[in-house]
Design a protein around this nucleic acid. Structure first.
Lengths: 104, 104
DNA sequence: TTGACATGCAACCATCTGGTTGCCTATTAT
DNA sequence: ATAATAGGCAACCAGATGGTTGCATGTCAA
C-alpha cells in the first residue's frame, strides 16, 4: 500500500500510467518518446511502478511490453479515499462551528 | 495536485490524517502523543499537509488546532482514481488477450 | 510577575530520490 | 555474419526528504 502511494507521488510516473491508460501494452521505447528524460530514467520509473504492482511487463522478443494494472489504484480508492468521503460535510460544519466559537 | 500526492506518500502523514479523521481539531501536542517522533518532526509533517491544503489550522491562544480538509482527497478520487476504474476489466481482458497470443 | 506550557525557528545530518553517463547483452534484419 | 535495434546494469551526482537538537517566543496560571 505504501509502495503504491510512493509510486503515485511522482508526476512523471503518473504520466506514464496515463500513457498506458491511453494505450496499453507499450514498449519501453514507445514510452520514452517525447519525454525529456533518458531511457534509463524511464526504466527506473517503470521499475518502481512494477514494484508497486501498478504495471506488469511481458517480454516479447527483444521488446518489453508494459501493461497497466489498475487494481492497486482501485484499492486506494476503496480503502483510503472512500473513508474520507463521508466526513467531508461533517468536517466542514465542525470547522464552521469552531470558527464561530472563536471569540468566546 | 502534485503536492497532495506527495503529502499522501508518507505513512506518518497518512497516520496524522487518520488521527484527525478520528477526532478533528486536535492540538499539535495531542497529535504528537504516542508517536515515535519529535514534536518538530510532527510540525514539519503538518506543515506539508497544510501546504497541500489537507489540513487547516486555527490558533486558539497558545494552542494550534488542526482540522482535516478532505476536499483534496476527494478531488484525487474524482479526477484521478475514477479515470482508472472503468478501464479495469478492459485492461485485464486485453492483458489476457496478449498473453494468449504470446506463442503465435 | 514569574514559571510552566505550547509552539516556532534554524542549523545540521544521513539517507533516499531522480537523474545522468558509459558500457554490456540479446534479438532482429539485411 | 554483422550491423542495427531494444533493452539491462552499475557507478556516480546534486538536491530533496525525514529526522534530530538547541534555543527563542508567546500565552496562561498561580
Amino acid at each position: 500500500m505504501d509502495e503504491v502511494f510512493r509510486a503515485l507521488a511522482d508526476a512523471s510516473r503518473r504520466a506514464l500510467l496515463d500513457r498506458l491508460h491511453a494505450r496499453n501494452g507499450q514498449t519501453l521505447g514507445e514510452l520514452c518518446d517525447g519525454l525529456a528524460m533518458t531511457r534509463q530514467a524511464v526504466t527506473k520509473h517503470l521499475g518502481i511502478l512494477e514494484a508497486a504492482n501498478l504495471v506488469t511487463t511481458l517480454r516479447h522478443g527483444r521488446e518489453k511490453l508494459h501493461y497497466l494494472n489498475p487494481v492497486p489504484i482501485h484499492q486506494i480508492g476503496e480503502r483510503w479515499i472512500k473513508k474520507f468521503e463521508r466526513g467531508k460535510l461533517v468536517a466542514l460544519s465542525e470547522l464552521k462551528r469552531q470558527l464561530e466559537k472563536r471569540d468566546e
